[in-house]
Design a protein around this nucleic acid. Structure first.
Lengths: 162, 162
DNA sequence: TATTGTTATACTCTATAACTATA
DNA sequence: TATAGTTATAGAGTATAACAATA
């Protein structure tokens, strides 16, 4: 087992991190300009808009987007204050909070989406052939699933999700 | 002429963003645990350690890592206060500041690197075959170069064409 | 006891604008 | 005039720990 990454691995790692950093920076600006939301807030709303009944529990909503409970509480509070979501106790589990996107929230997502899609297409997919796209999608899905399955490493903080 | 992303594009976009988000979160923790640095600080030090004469101007150092001058000034100040870099006026251009990594800075990077490499290998490369790796590296390099070449969009103006 | 979520708090990061100085 | 960098400052994001309520 090599102690180092192969040069090819290192280059791949760097290219991946820089590309996504650039992409993230660009979409962050687009989302803020088109809808006055942070990217995290946009992701939360987009998720709710795509959910059955347009609602999710806090825990389900956090999954994959946010890494601390209090962070989500904070963001949900901001979205609620802006009238984009409502929070109600869950009838199924009295501990849980159901977050529901409002019509204003749906409208906000719709206002952001066309420019967002255009930007992602131009920045991320423009230089890819159809075959590259398929391969990239397969590879990233594999990596994502692998990472999701990793038990959080020994770090002091306890991770969400179980 | 599609107004939307193909489902395959959407899935690829999501898988890419979530994978890198998970990876970023993991390496951020590793870097902090092993060397008490943020990932940005680690990137800055690693870049300096790899540079000729172990030094770069502020502008060159910022490139690709940080998106505002003041942000870099702040980070460089923290690194300097920690004794990991020094800042001196450039002899070539009196306006420029040369940032030089100290031996303590090099040692810090070396303390972080083995665990960092192991983590990236386990999280990112473990599920990839040699062929996948090569393809991913090529694709991400192409995307990165494409994004680097994009003129920064004026976010206030609507994107034209596609 | 474990889980869901909130609160309070503190800290870091980032960005904008005004500024100095050099080219 | 344009560029390199700093300062001041303000706002947003995130995480920790303590907490209450429910399972």
């Amino acid at each position: 087992m090599a102690e180092e990454l192969e040069p090819e691995q290192l280059n791949t790692y760097f290219a991946l991190m820089e590309s996504v950093s650039l992409l993230h920076h660009a979409v962050e600006q687009q989302v803020r300009a088109a809808g006055e939301l942070s990217y995290v807030q946009f992701q939360l709303l987009a998720r709710l808009a795509d959910s059955p009944d347009r609602q999710l529990t806090m825990t389900a909503l956090a999954d994959g987007v946010v890494y601390s409970r209090s962070g989500l509480t904070h963001q949900a509070g901001l979205l609620e204050k802006a009238g984009l979501v409502t929070r109600t106790p869950s009838p199924d589990d009295q501990r849980a909070t159901l977050v529901t996107i409002t019509q204003a929230g749906v409208d906000r997502v719709r206002a952001i989406l066309p420019g967002h899609i255009a930007l992602v297409r131009d920045l991320l997919f423009a230089p890819l052939a159809a075959r590259d796209l398929r391969t990239l999608g397969d590879t990233m899905a594999r990596i994502r699933d692998h990472m999701r399955a990793q038990p959080p490493r020994s770090v002091s903080t306890r991770q969400r999700r179980g």
